[in-house]
Design a protein around this nucleic acid. Structure first.
Lengths: 123, 123
DNA sequence: AAAACAATTGAACAATTGCTCATATAATAA
DNA sequence: TTATTATATGAGCAATTGTTCAATTGTTTT
């Protein structure tokens, strides 16, 4: 925690008042963080990217990503719980698709940024 | 890894061929995951949300989030390294702002989704 | 010069995460 | 029924993460 002296010298109370006023309910910010967190893993990104192209079964995904069926299944569960993907059974096979097109929008937007990055600079 | 029998019975080779063809360079997908990962933490989301309202110093942020100045500083470093925020010195004080308006776009889009969520369903 | 202060950073530690392995479930085939 | 197959899941473990604490840096004040 910051000390008391800090309160006197550096905090810009006026600005803080203004910000606190417009503050988004913390619950939404929490959920937003959770959403990005789910998207913030290479395996899950690759799963989502594959599903952006076509509906796929667990086995296909394991084959495409060259990973175990178990780990793919674990990740799909997470994606399901967060309503990123949904599944449909056809006999023994489970087919997965994106739950809606909003993730695609996020991906397109994020990809734009990532493509324009030059290199990670560290100031 | 999946076993050989799986290759015969369940993998949809035609679809996989098609997907592998349009595959985004893995480097970009990796960076996209990294981007979402940085955004996927409650503290960092709250920092970004505050900076969306106004330029702020480390001390202000610590005050607003009710967290230690040290942990805010650590998080700001991460955000800086990923080009989410940038800083500007004014005497002893460091002022932080969002590096560009792209994160705001991502937030607005993500927020739309999060607001419409009913509850986490678990199938 | 020394003291004060805003911010940064490295080390340490608990908590979380993603994978593997083994097992369980659910649908189909024999 | 029993065997096979596709997927799901729980436990365990190594790796990563976010915070705290202590020390340091860079700037201003005295």
């Amino acid at each position: 925690m910051q000390e008391d002296r800090c309160l006197v010298s550096c905090i810009h109370e006026d600005v803080i008042q203004k910000i606190t006023g417009v503050s988004e309910p913390n619950e939404y910010l929490e959920r937003l963080a959770q959403l990005f967190k789910v998207l913030g893993d290479p395996t899950r990104v690759r799963i989502i990217y594959a599903l952006m192209q076509h509906e796929l079964c667990v086995c296909d995904l394991a084959h495409i990503l060259q990973m175990s069926q178990s780990s793919i299944s674990h990740q799909l569960r997470l994606l399901r719980q967060n309503q990123i993907v949904k599944k449909r059974r056809e006999g023994k096979i489970m087919f997965y698709t994106l739950a809606d097109d909003f993730v695609t929008k996020l991906f397109v937007l994020g990809m734009e940024h990532v493509r324009n990055e030059t290199y990670k600079e560290y100031k």
